[in-house]
Nucleic acid binder design. Structure first.
Lengths: 345, 345
DNA sequence: TAAAATTGGGCAATCGTTCCCGAAGCTTTA
DNA sequence: TAAAGCTTCGGGAACGATTGCCCAATTTTA
């Protein structure tokens, strides 16, 4: 098997005790300059590397953090995970990623698993199905650091990293309105999620500002966030079947936005002539779609980074944290062809 | 801090020794049925979970595997990593991902880092710059299990997971030829990489089969795999400046393929009318590009899965492995608009 | 009825590291 | 000159779990 030198090997080779080696290497204690030199040089020579497992055992830390997201095959989350990994890697933490696939039951199982792996903290974006968050509250009270990101929980007082969903949705909807669309439908995620409700409110507020009366038929739910392709197809078909068919679509998340285009094409609907499209997505290719997509883009990478920085700081803080931070990032609204004016002004 | 019950806590609470608890829980030893019941029920009650760190320390295993890729922000690698994670997660392994950004020096540093983390094995896809692979040979000889995937090393006898690059490139090139293109350029990655050379050979063989003489000017190298946007722009501009400008492009990897379209558009080149395009990419959105892209698609997820399965089997095998497996996956050639016929037949 | 076998469970070493407590040997001070 | 202080280092107990070895009590066997 692959074995490396331990502190004990060095002690034996140099005729010193393990404590001396440890201290000489850490430089934390009064050890003779000669001994320090001897030890460090020998350690260098044999390529000594402290065993992180032993360190963890002593320090009562696993040096791993658990991540809960709905799925990684999602532009937003894959970018966020990138940010998470980058910070964790540089701070010497493992990242254990779990996917809920929008199921509350799987979320529970995942938390169980992460706990059994003795994670030092949790980075959580709720599943669409989750309504009972009491176990997060319990974990928090037991002292487990938790940072919610993107899909946060309003009820639990802990760190939160997300965006101004109301404003982002408001602006995107208003862009469609300003481009001449009046019959704007909204495909949203489960109303369990705060972000769905906030985005819906932004949409409604934009309609109201421009004196467009809200049509209940124009609001369609994909309770699994569009993860099930069938679900999104049904949603779109419902809208298309409406006697007063909408002329624009505002979509609430990554899966739904990128999923719409193929479905509309399959139905022979031209974008944006028959149906305009604007929505949340972090796809790097939105510009190269046919037509290019009007999107709300979140700083996913930065959000993942910040959430992880906060979590690690929280883990490594001596005293239990009393003050919780909430950070809202700015989003970017990028106007492209899919929301081009329906009418010539 | 977040603390959970240990075997010692249970022993104290039940007035038994830690060995009894351990054996009662593992069921491996002669322990009275009553005691077993008592212990298991108590453990259940307090939600006891064995500390994986302590287990690792005893077993001399970190339960982590190191991954070396050029970058994760690449459709192929992100999908492969997905496969890696899924297998590792289910087998109780951590995955530590490192990126070389095509630099040989960073690859060395990454290996150093992974070694210092005491990984149990390595999953490697070479950087474009790497030529000296002697340290992999040394690690292998020291007993560290290594699986190469995608960008394999021909010289080292260990497990390998990749595709039939020659055939995939041959077929893609032939598709362009069959569609009426005769002046086919090839943008390739560094010739350090075996996969670049194999794909180049496939391209050349297809030309030869159809009696098209190879023009050296039509072969352009992006030595950093198109990771530097400037590099790819230069490559394309060189081709466009040619007196006898090519009418089709065959591209060797994910970054280069998806990078071409925006650059060509910026130069006012129409695809496929002015320049056809076919190349390797695993983008899920290739179909929705304008124009839709003709691609060679690799089973990235499955490749990641298989590589990890082989690695973990290798790690957990009692005896050092003598037999090394080499697995070549089938690729998929998907014909779309970007390679549509230049001439009406 | 005494010896042997079986059953049930404890002791202590081990993994690699840190860190509290001494313990020498030397120098300084009163 | 002896006590006190400083420097430099070692012993050994943790951390949480496993496991070989041993021991006591009970049951079986001769």
């Amino acid at each position: 098997m692959f074995q490396s030198y331990t502190i004990k090997d060095i002690a034996k080779a140099l005729g010193l005790s393990t404590s001396t080696i440890s201290r000489a290497l850490s430089g934390s204690y009064k050890i003779g300059a000669n001994t320090v030199k001897l030890v460090t040089e020998y350690a260098e020579k044999v390529n000594y590397r402290p065993n992180p497992i032993a360190l963890s055992l002593k320090a009562h830390k696993s040096h791993s953090i658990g991540v809960v997201v709905c799925e990684v095959a999602n532009n937003y989350f894959s970018q966020a995970i990138n940010g998470i990994e980058s910070v964790a890697y540089n701070s010497g933490y493992h990242v254990i990623i779990t996917q809920t696939h929008e199921s509350a039951a799987r979320e529970q199982v995942n938390i169980e698993h992460l706990l059994s792996r003795h994670v030092d903290g949790l980075l959580v974006s709720l599943s669409a199905e989750t309504t009972d968050v009491s176990f997060y509250q319990e974990l928090k009270e037991k002292g487990l650091p938790i940072v919610f990101f993107d899909r946060i929980v309003p009820g639990i007082d802990t760190h939160k990293v997300y965006i101004d969903n109301f404003k982002a949705a408001f602006d995107a909807t208003e862009l469609l309105i300003n481009n001449g669309f009046k019959k704007i439908a909204h495909i949203t995620n489960s109303s369990n999620l705060l972000i769905s409700r906030e985005r819906l409110n932004g949409y409604l507020a934009a309609l109201e500002k421009h004196q467009i009366t809200f049509d209940q038929d124009y609001l369609v739910y994909c309770d699994h966030g569009g993860m099930l392709i069938h679900e999104l197809e049904t949603a779109i078909d419902e809208l298309l079947a409406l006697p007063n068919r909408p002329d624009a679509l505002f979509t609430t998340n990554d899966r739904i936005t990128t999923g719409c285009l193929p479905i509309l094409k399959k139905r022979g609907i031209k974008v944006p002539d028959d149906m305009a499209l604007a929505g949340f997505t972090n796809s790097d290719f939105a510009e190269w779609f046919a037509p290019s997509l009007t999107v709300v883009r979140q700083p996913a990478f930065e959000m993942g980074k910040l959430a992880t920085e906060i979590l690690i700081k929280s883990i490594e803080s001596k005293r239990p944290i009393e003050e919780y931070t909430t950070h809202q990032f700015e989003t970017e609204l990028i106007s492209r062809s899919s929301s081009a004016s329906a009418i010539a002004f």
